[in-house]
Amino acid sequence: MNDRSLTYREAVREAIREALQRDPRVFLMGEDVGHYGGCFAVTRGLLEEFGPDRIRDTPLAESAFVGAGIGAALGGLRPIVEIMTCNFSLLAADQIMNTAATLLHMSGGQFNVPLVIRMATGGGKQLAAQHSHSLEGWYAHIPGLRILTPATITDARGMLGAALACPDPVLLFENQTLYNMEGTLPDPPPAVDLDSARIMRPGRHLSLLTYGASLWKCLAAAEQLATEGIEAEVVDLRTLRPLDDATLMDSVARTHRVLIVDEGWRSGGISAEISARIMEQRFYDLERPVARLCTAEVPIPYAQHLEEAALPQAGTIAATARTLVSTHD
């Protein structure tokens, strides 16, 4: 098995290309995915390779093309719908929540909706509030959806195929700051599951529970903390719905101290959900109250220094972690 180097963007593109090659029922649609090559250049070259029937540019009408995707899925196809950023998914929120997530239930189990929606999420690229929010935790509230947050090259390459194999609607949130990240991938790419969190770095003093772009900030923080003798365990949630309670709780039981890092807002976010589950399941293993580091409760600012300050960063993660392990006399 040979490792090769590629970017997160290339990994996603390869995953789409492989899906199109493998299964004639798969097609891609979204704004600017064809001629323009994708707003984040993920789909560049695919129109030329697969033609306009399978790489379809859509009007700026999220509700319509997500609805079309649901119809196609019900009709036996395997659509991949790209929404430019998750902020715009709100225009299709009715289709996602009231139709895609409910049909299996409302049809008494007759109609699965095998739809995959990819969208960019997260801030950090100075795209301002309407292009920079993190709504994955919000969607994780909805039964009937599976919420994936690929943070690694391996998951960027592997999760799409696994999502297409899932009979129910899957939302993939690709953090826009990760597209240019380079990494290595074994050849052939490993299969991935959609159910488990992954311990990215073991440690015994505290658990950093996180996902998406914050994973890399946590790993950087852990590296810094290690030089100070603090061994942080970094756990990549990978899927926000369903949450892999077992892996998270095992980590808590080992370290007794928890910091949840989440680029969503704190109030009512996925960090609140995880914190509540720890209270329910592992209260008696806790040495300190569960800590959270989330995005400041403001629309993501445009100005670079303000945007940086609003988002969790490696420095603030390390600083918060230190307070969790310090002793006071």
Partner: peptide, 16 residues
């Protein structure tokens, strides 16, 4: 004198 019986802060883990 022993310290007065005040509410002590104890982590759940320590209590267990």
């Amino acid at each position: 004198p022993a310290p007065a019986a005040t509410h002590t802060r104890v982590s759940p883990l320590a209590r267990k």
